[in-house]
């Protein structure tokens, strides 16, 4: 589903002394099927933006369109539940939301609420369990007897079981160990490709944004600061530094290399091996092989 924000503003506790504008005149368009990273430091409006995507909040000004659903200050779609069954949101630390007696029941909770027939739910459980890297023998166990990483996977399986078209991920790897982080991101990436999802990843990790996203939106003070392909955005070191963001480490290194050798190696998505070869030819022959 295409997602479009037109002049969107959001003000918390409007018309009170505590009013706080979290989003200001925000415009962007996410075409169906893309993998978008939304990056910004704490307080930049990422979470508020995310809550618009399945109608948890409606804009104070402007218009949000998600596929055929429209959110404006005056109207919420009458079929809000339907929107929520098509936009799956994995919140931060989703394992805190587990509550059922068994893993199977917890995963079934979402689709049951959307009125999915029991047989279909069981089929979906069979499909999502291996997709998140769990095994079927866990289905009858209590989710609270699992490790933190496994609990996170159960929570994610619950979102996947509603069969969303849009998957919204709010820092899905926070607090996991490096292997867990990598496995979870690879899993989302595979699903994104295989199921033709539209994926929106809110992250602090420039490395993940560079590796997985095809489009990056940088937020600052509630509004869009930059957007473009990861290569376009992440090579603008000074602009990013202004909003207290770092560039991915590979680009940091290439910048430091240029400072020392006065030869620039432009980044355009090379592998580490290709970069090593370029550095090799500069160090040995004084010229770049590119």
């Amino acid at each position: 589903m295409d997602i479009t924000f037109t002049n969107v503003s959001y003000i918390y506790q409007r018309n009170t002394p505590f009013a706080h504008q979290a989003i200001k005149d925000l415009n962007f368009h996410i075409p169906s099927g893309s993998f978008v990273a939304i990056v910004g430091h704490t307080g930049s409006g990422k979470s508020t933006l995310l809550q618009h995507l399945n109608g948890l909040v409606t804009p104070s000004e402007g218009e949000v369109k998600i596929g055929e659903y429209k959110l404006t200050p005056k109207e919420k779609p009458t079929n809000l539940k339907e929107l929520r069954s098509r936009v799956g949101v994995v919140f931060q630390y989703p394992e805190h939301q587990l509550f059922e007696e068994t893993v199977a029941k917890d995963i079934a909770f979402g689709p049951e609420n959307f009125g999915v027939p029991k047989e279909t739910i069981n089929e979906r459980i069979k499909r999502v369990i291996p997709a998140v890297g769990l095994s079927e023998d866990m289905l009858e166990r209590s989710p609270f007897d699992l490790s933190g990483g496994q609990m996170r996977r159960v929570a994610i399986a619950g979102v996947l079981a509603i069969n969303p078209d849009v998957l919204v991920l709010d820092e899905p790897t926070a607090g996991l160990d490096p292997r867990g982080q990598k496995e979870i991101m690879e899993m989302f990436n595979t699903m994104h490709k295989e199921q033709g999802l539209t994926t929106i990843l809110v992250t602090h990790s420039m490395e993940d944004a560079l590796k997985y996203a095809d489009h990056v939106i940088i937020l600052n003070k509630g509004t869009k600061y930059m957007e473009g392909s990861p290569e376009e955005v992440f090579t603008q070191k000074d602009a990013l530094k202004q909003v207290q963001l770092d560039v991915p480490e590979v680009i940091q290194l290439l910048n430091a290399f240029e400072d020392k050798f006065s030869i620039s190696i432009p980044f355009h998505g090379q592998t580490v091996q290709e970069i090593a070869e370029t550095i090799h030819s500069i160090v040995k022959d004084g010229v770049s092989n590119e």
Partner: peptide, 11 residues
């Protein structure tokens, strides 16, 4: 990781 790749190229 980069250091390893550089070693592979003969540095």
């Amino acid at each position: 990781i980069l250091a390893d790749e550089l070693k592979e190229t003969g540095i």
